[in-house]
Amino acid sequence: MHPAPSVIIFTTLSGLGFGLLTFLGLGKPEVTGWVAFVFYAIAFGFAVGGLLASTFHLGRPERAWRAFSQWKTSWLSREGICAVAALVVMGLFAFGAVFLDTHWWALGWIGAALSLATVFTTSMIYTQLKTIPRWNMSLTPVMFLSFSLAGGSLLAGAEALAPWLLAIAGAVQLAYWAKGDQAFATSGTDMGTATGLGDRGTVRAFEPPHTGSNYLLREFVHVVGRKHAQKLRVIAFALGFALPLICLILPVEGLMLKHLLAGIAVLLHIAGVATSRWLFFAQAEHVVGLYYGKR
C-alpha cells in the first residue's frame, strides 16, 4: 500500500492524542487549572491534528462531513462519529478541570471509553479489509490499542504503568510482524485464484493492461518502501519501545533529569511509532497486485 504521509501522521498522532485523553478521563493524572490546560492542549492538539491530517488524502475534503452518515456498515463512518463524540465529551470534562477546578467523573469515564473506541474503530478500518491479508488479522486492533495506551501513558507521565504498557506494545509489535509475514501466504489467494486459471497450470503475468502505471499500481503495489523493511523494523522497535523503556527505568536522581528523560522517551516513541506505521502501510500487500504479477 502507498504509505501516504497524511494517513501515517493521522494514525500516529491521533493514536497518541486519544491515548492521552483516555488517561486524562480516568484521572491519571488528576490535574486542574493551568497544568490541566497544558495536558489537554497536547491531547487535543495530537487528536485533532491527526484527524485534520487524515482529510488531506481525500479527493473531495469539502464533503468530509458526509462521512458521519453510514455508521451502520462503515467503520470509517463509525470512527468519525466516535472521534467527534470523544472530543466533545472530553472537551466538556476538560472545561470542568481547567476552568472550574472540578472533575465530572461520569463524563471522564465516558470520554475515556469513547477515546479508546476511536482508536479501535480506526484500527477496524484496516482490519476489515480481506484484500490486505497483513491487516486482516485480530492482532491489528490489538496493536493500535496497545500503541495508543503505551503512548498515552508516556504522555500522561504515568510512571508506574508506562514501562509495562511499553513492554506490552513492543511485544505486540513483534508478534504482529511475525504473524503478518505469513499472512499473505496463508490467505490462500494467489494468481491461480485471482485468474481462476490456477488448476490448469502455473499462471504468469505475460503482459500488463497498459505500458504505463495506473492508480491501482500507485496505490496498492508500493514496493519501494519495502526495500529497507528489516532495518526499519529494528529502528521502529528501538525508537518506539526499547529506548523509551530504558529512559523510564533508568535509576536517576532529581526531578529535572527525570522529566528530561520522560520528554526524550516521548519523542523517541513518536518517531518509532511513525516508523512502524510507515511499515504498516508500505509492507501491506493488496491482492490486486496479483493481477499484475506483483505483490
Binding site: 479527493g59 473531495r60 462521512a67 478500518i125 479489509l129 485471482a194 492508480y215 490486486v288
Partner: peptide, 27 residues
Amino acid sequence: SNCIGCGLCAWSCPYGARELDLAEGVM
C-alpha cells in the same frame, strides 16, 4: 456528488475495479 474520494472502496475491492479519478477526486 456524495463521494469524498477517501479511496476505501478501492482498498476493499480485490479485483482493482475502482479507480480514483485524479482530476475529479471521485471514485
